[in-house]
Every structure is written in structure tokens, then in C-alpha cells.
Nucleic acid binder design. Sequence first.
DNA 1: ACTATTTCCTGGATGC
DNA 2: TGCATCCAGGAAATAG
Length: 273
Amino acid sequence: MPELPEVETIARGLDKRVAGDVIESVWIGNKSNLLKSPAKVIAKTLEGARIEHFRRVGKHIVGDLSEPGRKTAPRAQWIIHLGMTGRMMVCQPEDETAKHTHLVASLKSGRELRFVDPRRFGKLQVVDAASFAAPGAEPIGADRDQFAKLFKGRKSPIKSALLNQKLLSGIGNIYADESLFRAGIRPRRQAASLTKADLTRLYDSIQEVLAEAIAAGGSSVSDYVDSDGEEGFFQLQHRVYQREGEPCLVCKTPIKRIVLGGRSSHYCPSCQK
DNA sequence: ACTATTTCCTGGATGC
DNA sequence: TGCATCCAGGAAATAG
């Protein structure tokens, strides 16, 4: 599932390959639950636009669009959320159309950008230029004091707070579990109960885990691949996620799995307090 | 202002 | 082999 490191990898890949290209025409399928803007509006906004850049904001891919020939004339932003199974693929027109293809943007270079999403938890929208903002703080390089304040007075489990995109935007189930393991904090701990030392370790763990995961090209669980169809390999470095029953890499205690807010949470009962 | 629960959706895994 | 059932989960909506 695409979280911050996967979305970062995909956005960088897309930027490298299609920045500067111009969208000539757009086809949108009929599955409207994916669309946060009306299909007509999306098509009209994308058609004729030049893609200045693709980049990541939270778990969103943002495409900055401009008027062709006038790079400095901002036009709109194309916002893509991959949900659980969404993919953005750079294809040749003759490439076979994958099942569950919901949008195809034909580019001036002759290539196509395709959005594919079997489970349809993804979202597509267009917004005014420079108007898009993630609902919460950017986890990478967040201010330490601001970070600590996010959890003040929160009664929910720290794991749930980490998944709350309105607090931090970008952390999902994998990196929440992995960060909590490295920080030695149990997922069920009430967020407000974290000491200053806990928060410092958590902050550092998040920075470390996200940086390592980005360097590894993300985690390929489920069917994640980047915009080149390449798998990431951070899943090989997971210490707790999806390792229920397997020995902790530090102390050999079997990793436990519990369900918090309907989400699997994995932790070492010995290393995490 | 929070928090907890439900909903959306398909494919892969499991069980009989 | 086939068919039914369950499960994964990001985030919005709903209920408390």
C-alpha cells in the first residue's frame, strides 16, 4: 500500500519521466467514486496543460500544471491519491490496457499516463493552482516541538494518532508499526501518555524509517510497484510489520499482532513498552 | 473538539 | 475443481 515513501518514489519517477510534457487528450472511465472533481472538469483542466512537475504532498501526488509555452502561468493542480491499490503508469499507446484503468492522459510525446486502481480507494481531483495543502504536518523534517504538541491531550492510541492524516500526513500502517518498534513504544499506548523522551525517540525513529524506506524505493507489499513498474525493497527490512509469530530481530520474542481501529498492528511485547 | 465505528471495493487466500 | 466466505486497509462519513 502506498504510504509516504512509496508516493515519494512514484512522484519522483513520474517527474523524471514526464515533467515538461503536455497533455493532449484525456479519457476518464465511468467509476465516479474515484473522482473528487467532476469528470468533465478534470478532463477540461488537464487537456492542453503542460506538466511542470510531479511531487509528493502527504500521501498525495501533485501535478503542477501550467499553460504550454508560458511556464510561469500556473493553471491548476492535478491531485492524485493512490488509496490502497492505485498506480500511475507511463505507457506506450500500444501497451495493453490494464484491467481497472480509470484515466488515460495522452501526452504530446506520444506516451500515455494511466491511472489504474482495482480497489478504487484512490481519488482524482483538480484544484486551483498552488491551492492544495495536506491536511496535517509534513512528517519529514517536522519541527520537534510542533511534533510533540500534536499528541498533547490525545486519548487515542499512539498508533491511531500516527495514522491520523490531520496530524501528520503521510504515515500509514507499515511505517507507523515500524517507527513504534524502533522507538520502543507499544501501539496501544495512549498518545498523551508519551514522555518527552518517548516523543524524541518516536520523532527520530520516524525520520530514520522514512529516509531508509525512500532510499530503498518503498515497500512492495500487496502489489506496489513504482511508475517504472519496479518493486521497492524496504519490505525486506521490516522488523515487525506482517511478522506475526516470527522472532523479534532484537530479542527473539515472537512478534504480536493486535487490531486497533480495525487495523493490524504488529509489535514486540518485550522491546516495546 | 475528539474519538470510535462503519463504509467503500476487489483479488487473493482459505475452507469445505 | 468450484464456490462461498473472509480479509487487507486509507480516509471520509457517521454516530456518540
